[in-house]
Design a protein around this nucleic acid. Structure first.
Lengths: 188, 188
DNA sequence: TTTGGCATGTAATCCGTTACATGATTAG
DNA sequence: CTAATCATGTAACGGATTACATGCCAAA
């Protein structure tokens, strides 16, 4: 309708980080994301800085130089307008993601591959998923202790547990597939 | 190294479809994908036609006009060179996907949202995932009957079951999250 | 006859990563 | 002193979706 309906999820993700984590720099945002939702969300500097600039122009954030730092640092802070935009976005039902999985594509094309090779891929995949799940379990325990009492705790935990669930499911799937393939008449 | 190392997964996906499903048109490829791996892989015409053209130029596929059809149809067929390229790609371990999940991002930012709204999102998400899982179970039964004996059967089944597993996991996660949030001191 | 599906293709656009460029600061 | 890390930004590129443009065929 108007000139600058922002629709980029990136913008909202950054806005969300600023709302949740408090004022910080573009660099900090990157770290914050790495330490929290990296499994399910990523932003590169090539996105972050232009996005902050854009949002500054449209009044969703404002920035001040960080006086307390010996370095050149811009601290971004979400504005009321930004909070309103964020909240409105959070109210909309999330869009379904359309994932692309090379592992599954390659499995689907399994008849074009030597069995042992495919099985090897599936094994690595299962191992990676299991490791990832375990790592996230550890992270969950850690966060539960360090952030005990924080209002964001249950949400942080939920995000971690999403990773645990899907990684377990992946591992189960891969192992199941391996044994099916092994018991099926192996052609190659 | 050389002029045209193709690295686009799209190309390999199309090559795979041609290898698996036999010679067909760009239009057919689209359908084939929709009916098989749509859950985990998609290609739009904007990708398919240029990709076929590219691969034709580099000799991975060749095309002939479909004489038997009253319509203007180009039938693409994978060449030996194409088969070799495909096989070599299939041998490489699949790259990890880096998914973006709006649902999880919004969950992570749950402290910025009214609880009931977030819970509503999670409920829809859980319902959609459960439905999807059931639908895929039905599809599995169907394919098991209709394709019985086909050498591609176990791979098709595996791809479907991947969907079943992850959708179940999503549903479980969402329901778990809902009850955690309900039992946690609701602030809003 | 008109709607929907078959069929191919291009252009615009968006979104995102990677690479490049630069420079200050801190830790070893 | 020197390497790593902090910190910001731009440019190039790649990959994918959407919209647009075109037109024929079959069925209702």
């Amino acid at each position: 309708m108007n000139g600058k309906d922002l629709k980029k999820t990136t913008d909202f993700a950054l806005l969300g980080v600023l709302a949740q984590g408090g004022p910080m720099s573009g660099y900090d945002i990157r770290n914050y994301i790495s330490l929290s939702i990296a499994q399910f969300w990523n932003e590169s500097f090539g996105q972050i800085y232009p996005s902050l600039e854009r949002m500054k122009k449209s009044g969703l954030v404002k920035s001040e130089a960080d006086e307390g730092s010996p370095r050149r640092r811009q601290i971004y802070r979400i504005t009321d307008k930004g909070r309103a935009a964020l909240k409105s976005w959070l109210t909309q039902p999330p869009e379904a993601d359309r994932p692309r999985s090379e592992m599954i594509l390659k499995t689907m094309l399994g008849d074009q591959t030597d069995r042992p090779v495919l099985i090897g891929h599936l094994e690595s995949f299962a191992n990676a998923a299991e490791q990832r799940a375990k790592q996230l379990e550890a992270q969950q325990a850690l966060v539960e202790q360090s952030d005990a009492g924080s209002p964001e705790l249950p949400f942080a935990i939920a995000a971690i547990r999403a990773g645990i669930h899907v990684n377990r499911a992946r591992a189960v799937w891969a192992r199941e597939t391996i044994s099916t393939l092994n018991s099926t008449g192996a052609k190659k």
